[in-house]
């Protein structure tokens, strides 16, 4: 059956970008930036709000474990133990792609020319922003069941290669202008593809940093 692709967008001001996430992406590991840095973050955040264009497309799909050890989706069979754990007990899932738009990349590039501190801050703000936008998108998925934490290609053993299948399935290039380079990088760079299972009951499954094998990462949530 033809997928029903939903579209979702939000005005820049409507997405609250959590300070702590910005700081984490800047490598503060639980510390609080000093006043001068906080001022820079605010200045960058203001400009970012004029540059960001949040857009997302999503589909609700069937999913099930194959006997052969893969996970079935309408766009193909996925092999990943970590995703399997995340989807345990789910018969449906949301598959989505969300982006902060090319304006975010342009802002980061422009700062990079003469204001490297702002460039790094803009990168962190944009990363935190697209994640916050994903939260807002996931919160918009109503209906029955409990939404599991989103799980993206590149997390744990879920190969990046699945990005291309997800993007094609969602018609993301046409719908929200998210495309892949030959080396599997998404353009705009501040974009997320993810799968979030819909469970019948609430249950704690490992998500985010906890599923990642790179234990000494500077950005790891603690």
């Amino acid at each position: 059956m033809t997928p029903v692709i939903g579209l979702f967008t939000a005005e820049a001001e409507k997405i609250a970008i959590p300070d702590r996430e910005i700081w984490r992406y800047l490598g503060y590991r639980g510390n609080v930036p000093d006043g001068a840095v906080l001022e820079q973050i605010e200045a960058v955040r203001r400009e970012f709000l004029g540059a960001v264009q949040y857009k997302a497309c999503f589909a609700k799909t069937k999913t099930r474990r194959n006997d052969a050890g893969g996970i079935f989706f309408p766009f193909g069979t996925v092999r990943s133990k970590a995703l399997e754990r995340s989807l345990a007990g789910c018969e449906e899932a949301y598959v989505f792609c969300a982006t902060a738009g090319i304006g975010a990349d342009r802002l980061i590039s422009r700062y990079a020319v003469a204001e490297p501190a702002r460039s790094v801050i803009a990168d962190a703000v944009a990363t935190a922003a697209v994640e916050a936008f994903c939260d807002s998108l996931c919160a918009s998925f109503g209906g029955s069941g409990y939404l599991r934490p989103r799980f993206s290609p590149g997390y744990g053993d879920l190969s990046l290669e699945y990005q291309s299948e997800v993007l094609r399935y969602l018609d993301a290039a046409r719908k929200i202008n998210v495309q892949l380079t030959q080396s599997m990088m998404m353009v705009p760079s501040k974009s997320v593809t993810a799968i979030a299972g819909i469970g019948r009951e609430q249950c704690a499954v490992p998500s985010g940093c906890r599923t990642c094998t790179q234990k000494d990462c500077a950005y790891r949530r603690r």
Partner: peptide, 14 residues
């Protein structure tokens, strides 16, 4: 020593 963080390092560089 991880007492100064990247944005500060870069602001000092600028």
């Amino acid at each position: 020593k991880k007492t100064v963080f990247l944005p500060q390092l870069l602001m000092s560089a600028e």
